[in-house]
Design a binder for these strands. Sequence first.
DNA 1: CAAGAAGTATAGCGATCACTTTACTTTGGC
DNA 2: GCCAAAGTAAAGTGATCGCTATACTTCTTG
Lengths: 209, 209
Amino acid sequence: METRSTSGGQRRGGRGARERILQAAATLFYEEGIHATGVARLVETAGVSTRTFYQHFPTKTALVEEYLRGYEAGLARRIEQKLTREGLTPRDQLLALFTMVAEASSGPAGGPSNRGCPLHNAAVEAAGQMPDIRALVQGNKEGIIRQLTDIAAQAGAADPERLGRQLAVLLEGATAMSTSLDSSRPRQDALDAARLLIELSLPKPQPTP
Amino acid sequence: METRSTSGGQRRGGRGARERILQAAATLFYEEGIHATGVARLVETAGVSTRTFYQHFPTKTALVEEYLRGYEAGLARRIEQKLTREGLTPRDQLLALFTMVAEASSGPAGGPSNRGCPLHNAAVEAAGQMPDIRALVQGNKEGIIRQLTDIAAQAGAADPERLGRQLAVLLEGATAMSTSLDSSRPRQDALDAARLLIELSLPKPQPTP
DNA sequence: CAAGAAGTATAGCGATCACTTTACTTTGGC
DNA sequence: GCCAAAGTAAAGTGATCGCTATACTTCTTG
């Protein structure tokens, strides 16, 4: 048994209040919004006392940040898995990112609704305030653009930066329009459009050189 | 009894408290968010007493709806003006919609910030609740898609519905990514991408038939 | 001028917000 | 079996929420 007497990290004992809080946050913040979700509702859903909540998170904002970092990490992991599956060509890697958001809810876990990207939503809700959250979202989106640009370069795009930024706009539009329309269709439309843009910006794949 | 013996419309007298409230709402809801803007802040900014506020709007939500309808109307008017200017071809009309959001803040008045589309933002903030607002946003976006589809059809697109929906996703992505990145660049990227998609989906314009 | 609509100022309503405090119980390794 | 960490329950903090109530002051106009 791992009585983590060794490495630092979680204390022994406890029955995972922290994880339950983060799980509740992921669900409620995403489904009902951050401002609309009060601490009372969070602790009720997590099955945790208010005291325990504040022993794990100094403020609600701290929980929001950890919720976003958790989503970011999970997303990065899912992308990594998708891309490193048996040798996809760079071109197919680009498309794989679009099929990812097209065929699944873009949210955490298996959320069924069209609630868009948690990071973008947080940026909208943060508005002028909460500079840390704005910075976190901004950094993430810049990372997405960089990733797309890198793959576009590997695919041999004439202007990989341009293609990367264009695809990023399509990706953001897919989830945002899904929210506005409350429909999953825009995510499919984005995939279609991405196919065209990629086709247009990449050199023709030689069938047999 | 109501003495308005003459024509309906604005009442005589009064010094425009209602307009000031709507103006304050447009600024504050857009710049700082709907949930984050309290009634106290609104009446302070509008230079209006709380009493007067509630004589014009039964609830804050009612003001939100009128704010959104007002934005919607202004947007429709701006689009109308852009499109009916001296004979633009349908193809150029499509592009004109993208230059509109590319070269200006997409918000109301001359707002300088990258705060995205007020309607989409409201949908994000409304989350699960506020079904009236969700419906309003949804209706507007469907209208945008219809408008794009109509113009695409006039331009002779092979599949105008498809092009219309793809361009709508690009448009939504432009403003949404502007929010997430806090930059105006995505709106330019969307214009670039739209050019390509339009070029690809429309028959070649015959220089001299 | 009188009337009345439109406005102001301000106090207060109950509810909810994020957060704290006090007092007690469970749990698990030594 | 002891003890400290991790947990629970529940009352209470002040602040702010959306909204109402009371009382008074302009303005415009028939």
